[in-house]
Each structure stands twice: as structure tokens, then as C-alpha cells.
């Protein structure tokens, strides 16, 4: 079993988002970066699969040198080796194309991504990769078992859950519930220092999209407080004033 896990580095969830350069750049000042939480679940589940039935887990990221701590952390959690494609991850299409170009000759049986990154929330890399590599892609999986060359999956659908199978090789994107994330231990952190981390230069593709500016939500007006003794008045206000019920 040869598994590839796509890792994206994102700002910590407690980050207060601000922008610089006339609202065209995300302000990284003082921001802590982490492995995207869904990618961490994907990595952990990939390790569980190879621990049970043998194989290797490679972690890949598209990012400049500043993403190296995250990819090292993936090695510390347990990935066997890592690849960093040395490019700014401009948009989902660009990232998927870089990963697909790397993966196409490597013979991976299974490729994991997170459901979406918690910064740009594109949620498109899994589907793009599937199409670029001409293999199935299944989104938001909450369970995966591999049996006889087949992935047995569960995924979220609108208002419920679906069980399905996918032939290998395939791409899956990790949703909560897939597993509990693993925290690196001291042995893992030590081992990560000597594990192979390959830096690959990007292949010449262009971004299809470009973020031109950012905007923060308009601040809310004052909160109208309703007396607790008269809590039922809320319903009347929602009907007559807010007009939402």
C-alpha cells in the first residue's frame, strides 16, 4: 500500500484575520501556522492503514521554505518521507496540477487530502486530482477501510450519510470523525530530522484565478437585549421586526 497525503499549512484557528497592502495580502504578522486540521486527520488515518496492512505514507505540500516546519511535523507524526514542491500555492488548480504531476509516475494506491483548507476553503483539490490522474475521487469521507484492492468508504451527503466503494487507486478527502489526530512524540520528532524531505521545483503551469482583494465583514450593530423574564418576546421580534420567521 503506497499512500500520498496532501498537506497544507494554514493559520491556527484562533487567528484574528487581518490584511495588509491595501487589503490585498493576508497579514502573517504574529500568526501561528499549523497543519490544516483535516489534513492531520488524513495523515493519521493513512498511518493507521499502513500500520495494519503494511505500506508507506508520503506527505506532500506545495509551499515555499516557510512551510517546512509543517511538513517536518508530518514526518514527526509518522509519515515515512516528504515532498515539498517549491512554489507559492496560488490557487487550488495550481496546487492540484503540481501534485498530479508529481504523483502520476509514483504509483500511489491512495491519495488523501483534507476536506478543505481552513484558510481558503476551496475544497477542490481532491476532485481536481482525481480528474487529472483519471481516477475516482470521493469527498468528505468519515470512514475508510481497504480490503482486496477496494476502498470501503462512508461520506457525508446533504442530510445524511452514504456508504460506497471505490476502486484503487483513488483520491479521498478527509472529514471529521475519520479518526482522532495523532500528536507527535519525542521519538517521532527526533526521527523526523533524518527522514527524507525532497524539494521539487514546480512545473510551469499558470494559475487560473487570482485573489485581487480581501474584505472583513461589516461590524454588527448593537445587540438588542430581551429581558429574561419575557423571553418569549423573542419570537415576536423575529417575526415582526427581523422578519425571519
Amino acid at each position: 500500500m503506497k499512500i500520498l497525503v496532501c498537506i497544507s499549512q494554514v493559520p491556527d484557528t484562533t487567528t484574528k484575520v487581518t490584511f495588509t497592502d491595501n487589503n490585498t495580502k493576508f497579514n502573517t504578522q504574529g500568526v501561528q501556522f499549523i497543519i490544516n486540521p483535516y489534513d492531520e486527520l488524513a495523515l493519521t488515518r493513512a498511518l493507521e492503514i499502513t500500520e495494519k496492512q503494511g505500506g508507506t505514507v508520503s506527505a506532500i505540500t506545495v509551499g515555499l521554505a516557510d512551510t517546512e516546519p509543517s511538513i517536518r511535523k508530518a514526518l514527526a507524526i509518522g509519515a515515512h518521507d516528504a515532498i515539498r514542491i517549491n512554489a507559492e500555492p496560488i490557487d487550488g488548480f495550481f496546487v492540484a496540477e503540481q501534485i498530479a504531476n508529481y504523483a502520476k509516475n509514483e504509483g500511489f494506491d491512495l491519495i488523501f487530502t483534507g476536506r478543505e483548507s481552513i484558510d481558503y476553503n476551496g475544497g477542490m483539490v481532491a476532485g481536481l486530482l482525481g480528474e487529472m490522474l483519471n481516477i475516482p475521487s470521493v469527498n468528505v469521507i468519515t470512514a475508510i477501510e481497504i480490503e482486496n484492492g477496494m476502498a470501503h468508504l462512508e461520506r457525508d451527503i446533504d442530510g445524511g450519510r452514504e456508504k460506497l466503494t471505490a476502486q484503487l487507486p483513488c483520491v479521498v478527502s478527509a472529514q471529521k470523525e475519520l479518526t482522532e489526530p495523532r500528536i507527535p512524540n519525542m521519538r517521532g520528532i527526533m526521527a523526523a530530522r533524518t527522514k527524507p524531505l525532497k524539494v521539487v521545483e514546480p512545473t510551469g503551469s499558470q494559475a487560473n484565478t487570482q485573489t485581487t482583494s480581501f474584505e472583513l465583514p461589516a461590524p454588527k450593530g448593537a445587540c438588542k437585549l430581551i429581558d429574561a423574564a419575557d423571553a418569549g418576546k423573542l419570537i415576536e421580534l423575529l417575526h415582526h421586526e427581523a422578519k425571519v420567521i
Partner: peptide
């Protein structure tokens, strides 16, 4: 951008070599 839409849209974009924006 429903769960099914999320599964289909990127594959369509890759097939058509189209730039895609989600959400």
C-alpha cells in the same frame, strides 16, 4: 456548493481546463 456539487465541480473544471471559484 452542496456535498454532491463539491464532488462534481472540480472534476468539471479539470475536464474543461476552466478556472474555478468555490463558495
Amino acid at each position: 456548493n452542496t456535498y454532491s456539487g463539491k464532488m462534481v465541480a472540480p472534476r468539471v473544471a479539470a475536464k474543461l481546463n476552466a478556472g474555478m471559484v468555490s463558495g
